[in-house]
């Protein structure tokens, strides 16, 4: 599965594509099963260059009933910095944020290192 993400032009906020517009939470985003619907969304998003910068698709895996990014870079984008747990989207808390914290993609299948939680 895939989602479409970018940073919003006006403030740099991480945003995700949902039915023709951008939303701030991954949990609210459109999830694409098919390549062609994902590509169509990307084309539409690129046609709005004053809304968001350089949209791109990311791969998702299922974690605790939520779609979460495979790559840890994208998980940090979807959460916020791990040294300030009250900054970024993670400040909202909730099940979707917890799922992101526990996520580990294919490349981290050992789950040896808890991604977020160091301080």
């Amino acid at each position: 599965m895939k989602a479409l993400t970018a940073n919003r032009l006006s403030d740099g906020e991480v945003v995700f594509w949902k039915s023709g517009a951008w939303v701030e939470r991954l949990a609210d985003a459109d999830v694409f099963a098919a390549e062609d619907t994902a590509a169509t969304a990307e084309t539409s998003a690129r046609a709005q260059p004053t809304m968001a910068i350089d949209p791109y698709l990311i791969d998702l895996v299922e974690t605790e009933g939520f779609w979460t990014p495979v790559s840890y870079r994208e998980r940090i984008r979807a959460l916020g910095p791990s040294n300030h747990e009250r900054h970024g989207k993670q400040a909202d808390g909730g099940d979707a944020v917890e799922a992101l914290r526990h996520a580990h993609g294919a490349a981290r299948s050992s789950g040896r290192v808890n991604l977020i939680r160091r301080k």
């Binding site: 740099g12 906020e13 260059p49 350089d54 984008r77």
Partner: peptide
């Protein structure tokens, strides 16, 4: 465009990072 603007904002120290500028 972003391609044109990026070098201009960088010359004033403004980056786009993961979560914000």
């Amino acid at each position: 465009t972003e391609d044109q603007f990026k070098p201009l904002r960088l010359m004033n120290g403004l980056y786009l990072q993961l979560h914000a500028y």
